[in-house]
């Protein structure tokens, strides 16, 4: 039985790297505009779940359905196109292209979607304003602080107006003050824009920004919404 009206849902995912199972029957769902935290200790399979949900990797078995379409039935190119148009990403570190300026970084996913440069940079700048980093537009990522860089990354994830933003330990490399600010801006902007957020974290205080939480332990998820 699947939760009604969900935007993205996964059922009984299994994925093995070498001899160790990373996912061993994980299920998950997220509704439009909902912020869901995926929690669990390190090595529990949180990131693997996120990668499967986003169609970056395909599970060995199980299904991921987005908007009624089965992800594993799609070709690599189709999944790439889906990620470009409907998904946004924030990672822990090393995600900004170091030689592009911040505004170019934010504009990059839009440009990959075929938006003209001027238009893309205008949209990018609006999002940077919302995340209070518009002053950094002309700087390179190497010249900004970790918290600022992460906010630029959030702006980049949100700029193409995705349906879902996947955030993998977005505050992992930040101190708690900067981390909280990033979380505040991320959840606030996502809620305003009606974007769903899948937030992978092992920190309870970060997870508390979500509407609800799902625990992954030993590759199995406990999603109260999802009666297995």
């Amino acid at each position: 039985m699947t939760p009604a009206g969900s935007l993205l849902e996964a059922h009984d995912l299994r994925k093995t790297y070498g001899p160790t199972p990373a996912l061993d029957g994980a299920s998950f769902s997220v509704h439009p505009g909902e912020v869901v935290a995926v929690m669990g200790p390190s090595g529990s399979g949180k990131s693997t779940l996120l990668h499967c949900l986003a169609g970056i990797i395909t599970p060995d078995s199980g299904t991921v359905t987005y908007g009624g379409r089965e992800l594993s039935a799609m070709s690599d190119a189709e999944r790439s196109a889906l990620r470009r148009s409907d998904f946004g990403f924030v990672f822990q570190f090393g995600q900004l292209v170091p030689e592009l300026t911040c505004v170019e970084n934010v504009a990059l996913p839009l440009r990959l979607n075929g938006v003209k440069r001027k238009q893309a940079e205008r949209t990018a700048l609006e999002w940077m304003e919302r995340l209070e980093v518009e002053d950094l537009a002309a700087q390179r990522p190497g010249e900004v602080s970790g918290g600022q860089g992460q906010r630029v990354a959030v702006a980049r994830a949100l700029a193409p107006s995705p349906k879902v933003v996947f955030a993998d330990e977005p505050t992992g490399a930040l101190d708690s003050l900067n981390g909280e600010r990033v979380m505040e801006l991320l959840t606030e902007s996502a809620r305003t824009a009606g974007t769903a957020v899948v937030l992978v974290t092992h920190e309870a205080r970060v997870a508390a920004y979500a509407d609800r939480d799902v625990v992954v332990r030993d590759g199995r998820s406990r999603d109260p919404e999802y009666a297995v």
């Binding site: 986003a54 970056i56 999944r79 790439s80 196109a81 470009r84 990672f91 292209v97 990959l112």
Partner: peptide, 13 residues
């Protein structure tokens, strides 16, 4: 390597 993976996650062709 990492940056490339991130770009792929974005759906870069």
């Amino acid at each position: 390597r990492r940056l490339l993976s991130v770009l792929v996650a974005f759906g870069t062709r």
